[in-house]
Design a protein around this nucleic acid. Structure first.
Length: 218
DNA sequence: CTCTCGATGTTCT
DNA sequence: GAACATCGAGAGG
């Protein structure tokens, strides 16, 4: 089994972790034993109570509590009543920060993933071939492909259900940044902080809307 | 291709 | 009661 990232990886500045997660491999073992894998191609940093785009801006609440805990745990929440978001808790215990995993390039367990996403038009072409580059190109789609929901909140990523493997760290030159997507209403300057990291040449990142949102703020 | 709109439930005010 | 770290369908060009 490939080497798994240890807690020390996550116990670092959140921007460092977000960038360093690109090229790593998000893995899950499902209840039926299927192993899912995908290369992380897009992530966003949310850093502390002072970051007005971060959920922790409201302080420690039942929902944000996990972000105040030790690093290397999953923070999963529901937004818009239907989409789950997977975050990785970062930095030392007591400091609320996390990295939102926004997109992966699926590499293993693809049949399981497409089965988990039954809305065929989004994941399959006319002739039924899977559209791999759209399977997990967005935080909600990523969670749907991996079958993640609120039950996975607080999962220890130094474990055997959900974890991240070393993979191959992305070369610095291949990494691009932009404002975080969906944070347009956050107070300045937090709406424009360039804390979204993605592989510039990947076709697996958030499409369309991403560039629209980035353009709007630029 | 672009743009608009509605779904839907948890959290916090 | 409003807001929400989104997505896909449908209409129009």
């Amino acid at each position: 089994m490939p080497a798994r990232l240890q807690r020390s990886f996550y116990e670092r500045p959140t921007l460092t972790v977000a960038r360093d997660l690109l090229g790593r491999v998000l893995a899950r073992r499902t209840p039926d034993g299927t192993v899912l894998r995908g290369r992380i191609v897009e992530a966003e940093a949310y850093v502390g109570e002072e970051d007005k785009a971060c959920h922790a801006r409201a302080g420690r609440t039942p929902r944000t509590d996990v972000m105040y805990g030790p690093p290397g745990f999953a923070y999963v929440y529901l937004t818009y009543g239907m989409h789950h978001m997977l975050n990785v808790v970062t930095e030392a215990e007591g400091r609320p920060a996390a990295v939102l995993l926004r997109a992966v390039e699926p590499t293993q367990g693809i049949e399981w993933m497409t089965g988990a996403r039954r809305n065929g038009s989004a994941t399959h072409g006319r002739s039924g071939e899977p559209r791999l580059h759209q399977l997990a190109s967005g935080p909600g789609k990523l969670c749907q492909a991996y079958g993640l929901d609120l039950r996975h909140n607080r999962t220890d990523l130094i474990g055997s259900d959900l974890w991240i493997e070393e993979g191959i760290a992305a070369p610095r030159r291949g990494v691009a940044t932009s404002a975080r997507i969906g944070c347009e209403t956050a107070a300045a300057p937090w709406d424009l902080m360039p804390w979204r990291f993605y592989l510039a040449d990947s076709r697996f990142v958030t499409p369309g809307r991403a560039s629209v949102a980035a353009r709007k703020s630029g």
